[in-house]
Every structure is written in C-alpha cells, then in structure tokens.
Design a protein around this nucleic acid. Structure first.
Lengths: 142, 142
DNA sequence: ATTGAAAATGAAAACGATTATCAATATCAG
DNA sequence: CTGATATTGATAATCGTTTTCATTTTCAAT
C-alpha cells in the first residue's frame, strides 16, 4: 500500500492504520511550517472530510510520543506543532508565517556545565530558539 | 504612603493605585518562582479578599506592559509569570518548584549573526532557557 | 472636605483550546 | 469472514483567558 514511514512506525508500535491517521500524517509530515491542531484539521479534511478535531489531537499526541512531531513555543502562542528535527537541533522560526529552519549550536555544553556549577542546579533540558522573519516574509515587509 | 516602586511606576504611567493592584504587586514582586495567575489570585487574597481573578489578569498585563513581569514558557506549560530580570538575562528554571535563576550568555551574538547569514532570516528575538532541578529539589529527590 | 468624571473593579457570561465520555464504526488477527 | 478490540466522531466537560457591564473607587478640581 506504500504507506508513509510515519504510519509504518505507528503500525509497528501497535497503532492501527486508519484513514484519519493517514490524513493527519499526510499534512504534518509535509509541513515546513509550525501548524496548529485546527489548521491540521482544516487541511486534513480535504483528504478525509469525516475527520474529527479530537482525532487530530489524538494523532498528534501519538506522533509526539514517537518523536515524529513536537510542540513549538513561540512568543505569539504555544499551540503549534512541527515535524521533529532529526538529532539535537535548535529552531529558527518565522514570526509571520511560522516557517521553520533548524541549526546546530552545541557549544552550549560548556555554558551549561558552567551554569550548573555556579547555581547548583541539575540541568536536564535546554531550549535555544531564534525568531525572526524568513526571507520571503522579509521581502514582503518592505 | 511608601508604595512599592512598581506601583509608583504604574502610577507615573497613569494607572491608579488600588488595593487590588497593591495585593497583586505584593505577591509578584516578592516571588522568586514562576507563578500562575490562579496562584497569584489565591495568595493575593490574603491581603485583599475581595480581589477578582480578572483583576489579576489585568494587573499582570499592565505589569508585563511595563516590563516588570514576564510570561515564562516551560515544557509543562506556558501560563506562569516571573518578575522580569534586569537587562538581557537568560533563564534557568526548576521543573519541580518553578524557582528561577538568571544568567548571562551573550556570546550568542556571533551565533545569531552566522545563522542569519546562512538562512537569510532576519532574526529579531531569541530564547535561551535551561531547565532542571534547583538545589533544594535535587536534594529532595534522592 | 466635597464633588464628579473617568478609571478600575468583580460577577457573570463568553470564548478558545484541550480533554473525557461513549455509542457506533473500522481494523486486523485468526 | 468473523469477532475482539482499537479507533472514531459527536457531545459535553474542563481549563485558562477575555469580554461585558453595572457598580465602586480613585483622584484632580473645586
């Protein structure tokens, strides 16, 4: 049936393959922008009109559990999702259109260790994110 | 009347001084932890029982507008506020109790410029946040 | 001190995002 | 094909936040 790799992975984890999941995966896997559940819902109904919003939430949850998508936090709000970057990448997000780029910057290790030593905190996670305008939106600005 | 500097600042901006605002400022200004509107509401009612939750939201909004408090984003959720650090500081947050520390790490400029050049993005904002366990919660863990 | 216009308040309702409930449906192993 | 079970979508519930609005409070001008 030539299923999308994400669907194969879900299937291997015991999830059944349904048209609702196919429709959501289709949208999420091909999106290069941060996208909210409602937007996924609207777009995915082109392929599967009977789709319910609840199923979008449940599918996003499953995909997040598999590390295939992740929630992104932005100054404007924190309800959007993106396809999870491979490995440990940092994010660059367009404030206008939500387009996402990634970059590496792992010279943070030194900084983190230094902060841990100075503060006595046990540091378990870090976020480094940049926000701005993507080339297209920058052009449209002027 | 020996008002708190935040109240004086609000007053200078045209805000009136009320008991509701005094109560909210009292809590926020002395908090060293990330704290949600509901928590502010609960704590501030000790001093001002008639306080409404709506007023907490409105006061936090005013304080945020003055740069005196800011919303913090965390893996567990994004509805908490902290007293805004002076100058450009980065955050270190305890995932357990919300205790907040700050640090400087402004060698980011080089990185940011490099990413901007590589991606064509115009970068306007950045977040660098660390999460972990504060010394107290680390101790309570074991 | 008194007054009154304007700002601020709190209660209630509205709202948007998310989660829980549940009967009906679809998947897939046997 | 069949049936146990996962999944679905509709509905309702929940949570955080905002709007509405009549009442109260602040504070500048008397």
């Amino acid at each position: 049936m030539n299923e999308h790799p994400w669907l194969i992975q879900l299937n291997e984890q015991g999830y059944r393959l349904t048209d609702a999941r196919r429709a959501v995966v289709e949208i999420m896997a091909h999106s290069t922008h941060a996208i909210t559940p409602i937007e996924v819902y609207d777009e995915a109904r082109d392929a599967h009109p009977a789709l319910g919003l609840v199923t979008v939430y449940r599918t996003l949850e499953a995909l997040e559990g598999q590390g295939l998508v992740q929630r992104v936090h932005q100054p404007q709000g924190c309800q959007a999702f993106i396809t999870a970057p491979a490995g440990h990448q940092h994010l660059l997000l367009c404030r206008q259109c939500g387009e996402t780029a990634t970059f590496e910057g792992d010279d943070l290790e030194t900084l983190i260790k230094s902060i841990a030593r100075k503060t006595g905190y046990q540091i378990t996670e870090h976020w480094l994110q940049l926000f701005g305008l993507c080339p297209d939106c920058k052009k449209a600005q002027a």
